[in-house]
């Protein structure tokens, strides 16, 4: 029993070691709700999780918000992630967390790209004569372009990338804690691939 206990001890201590080290790492896995891959950055006072969204899922979501089929198809042709940004500091040791998505860079095929943020999409909707109700739904479905979080504050929202389905990229992100700038890269993020159903041979 003593030997089992020691093994158990080692396992738990390893888990604790990994957990404590994860403050500097990106965790990947399958999101328990979406059942799709996620990438999560955990740093002091911050957690950022981005979860793949399937093109069909995005298409259906915006059809449900009243977008036409052609506009929904257009939206779904882009790379979308569900994004959860959280200030993990506590009221006993509070810190202010800020970000601005326009400062983030997508590194794809040796080129830098910017995320598509609310103002970019607004221009697109004006060109496509999208109705006001749909523009409102789209705008508020996106992660805010700029945000300031105090302890325990967070948002869920979609972040959008001008990349093809299945593209692998690095995301260079910047955030501020109490006004101090921090920067890191989340490597090897992958946009969801489109699912093409083919006839099943019997």
């Amino acid at each position: 029993m003593a030997r089992n206990f020691t093994r158990y001890n080692a396992l738990i201590l390893s888990a604790i070691f990994l957990a404590s080290n994860s403050s500097a790492k990106v965790i990947t896995g399958i999101d328990e709700q979406a059942q799709l891959p996620y990438w999560e950055l955990i740093k002091p006072n911050l957690s950022l999780r981005i979860v793949q969204r399937l093109p069909d899922q995005t298409r259906a979501y915006f059809l449900g918000r009243g977008f036409s089929k052609s506009d929904s198809d257009f939206i779904a042709s882009h790379c979308f992630f569900q994004t959860i940004f959280r200030n993990t500091s506590t009221s006993t040791e509070p810190h202010k967390l800020e970000y601005d998505l326009t400062q983030w860079q997508i590194k794809y095929q040796k080129k830098n790209h910017s995320l598509l943020v609310r103002k970019n999409w607004l221009k697109i909707w004006e060109q496509r004569n999208v109705q006001s109700a749909q523009k409102i739904a789209f705008e508020w479905s996106l992660l805010p372009t700029k945000q300031e979080y105090l302890p325990e504050d967070y948002n869920w929202g979609m972040s959008t990338y001008p990349l093809p389905h299945g593209a692998k990229f690095d995301l260079d992100i910047i955030w501020y804690i109490d006004g101090k700038k921090y920067q890191t890269i989340i490597p090897d993020i992958q946009c969801a691939k489109d699912i093409e159903l083919s006839p099943v041979e019997e």
């Binding site: 604790i16 957990a19 959280r86 506590t90 009221s91 105090l150 325990e152 504050d153």
Partner: peptide, 16 residues
């Protein structure tokens, strides 16, 4: 020690 942050997130009872 590991669970304290999880609990504090789950409760979220802070108004600013």
């Amino acid at each position: 020690v590991l669970l304290i942050p999880c609990v504090s997130i789950a409760q979220s009872a802070t108004l600013h």
